[in-house]
């Protein structure tokens, strides 16, 4: 495959960025999108140019490190992570636009790499449980109803890649935050912090400068892990419940 790539190049956080055009040849349809970028970078290094900086780690679709907006879609045209996207999803001769996540809470560090530490601070605000340390507890010590376990697991699938923020026209982190809140709030292990968790995480989300939800559904469409849009509804419900309870105290 022969492809034309238009890639966002930005020297550092303060520099002005722009799209640069590159040609790549001999791309196998079986290559992953990141392998295709590796080919581009080898080409750039050989010609003495600065390689394109992009985030990647496990390349197995489970770590949430890769983060590219490909032809206007977070993680590209397939519902998966960029690392699990293969070149067979494109045609020979295509022009592909590659941009970083866009959100003021995710500032560009270099080229296609953005700073997603805002997510870490949302987790620090309440995405944990007060687990006793020491040996693992007996598995049946805390029974969890099947429906709750399924609900928790569905939300626990979130890998925190930030595609939801990148896809949202408001740069909102509602889907990420709701996945994390719902995952722990439904379980007995998460019950002691049920109210403070949702209040603190939403407050941190606001403080980081993420936008609000206008229910466009773009986040859930982009999510490589299939976190449903209804996740946001569940978090809103938890937030209102916690606010009412806090008001009574």
């Amino acid at each position: 495959m022969k492809l034309t790539l238009r890639v966002w190049r930005q020297k550092n956080a303060d520099a002005e960025g722009a799209m640069s055009t590159y040609e790549v040849d001999d791309i196998s349809p079986d290559m992953s999108f990141l392998e295709m970028l590796d080919v581009l970078n080898e080409q750039l290094i050989l010609s003495g140019e600065e390689p394109v900086a992009f985030d990647h780690d496990c390349r197995e679709g489970i770590c949430g490190a890769c983060s590219l907006v490909i032809n206007g879609d977070a993680h590209g045209p397939e519902r998966t992570t960029t690392c699990q996207l293969h070149m067979r999803s494109f045609q020979d001769g295509d022009t592909i636009d590659i941009e970083p996540w866009r959100a003021s809470a995710f500032p560009v560090i270099k080229d296609l790499v953005v700073d997603r530490s805002a997510f870490d601070r949302i987790i620090q605000a309440g995405g944990y449980i007060t687990a006793p340390t020491g040996s693992a507890p007996e598995a049946h010590a805390t029974p969890v109803p099947k429906a709750d376990a399924d609900f928790a697991f569905e939300h626990a699938e979130c890998i925190g890649c930030g595609a939801c923020v990148a896809a949202c026209p408001n740069g909102a982190a509602m889907l990420f935050t709701s996945a994390k809140v719902n995952h722990l709030n439904v379980l007995p292990q998460g019950a002691p912090e049920r109210e403070t968790r949702v209040l603190d995480m939403v407050a941190q989300m606001d403080a980081e400068g993420f936008g609000g939800c206008t229910l466009t559904g773009e986040c859930a469409t982009a999510c490589p892990k299939g976190i449903p849009l209804m996740s946001i509804t569940s978090m809103n419900k938890e937030w209102l419940r916690a606010t009412r309870k806090a008001g009574k105290r």
Binding site: A103, S104, G211, G212
Partner: peptide, 20 residues
Amino acid sequence: LSRRDIKARPSKYVHKKPRA
């Protein structure tokens, strides 16, 4: 809320797609 939303997404994507 709109002010907050616009501030949260200051730069648009070069590759535009019809949304929502």
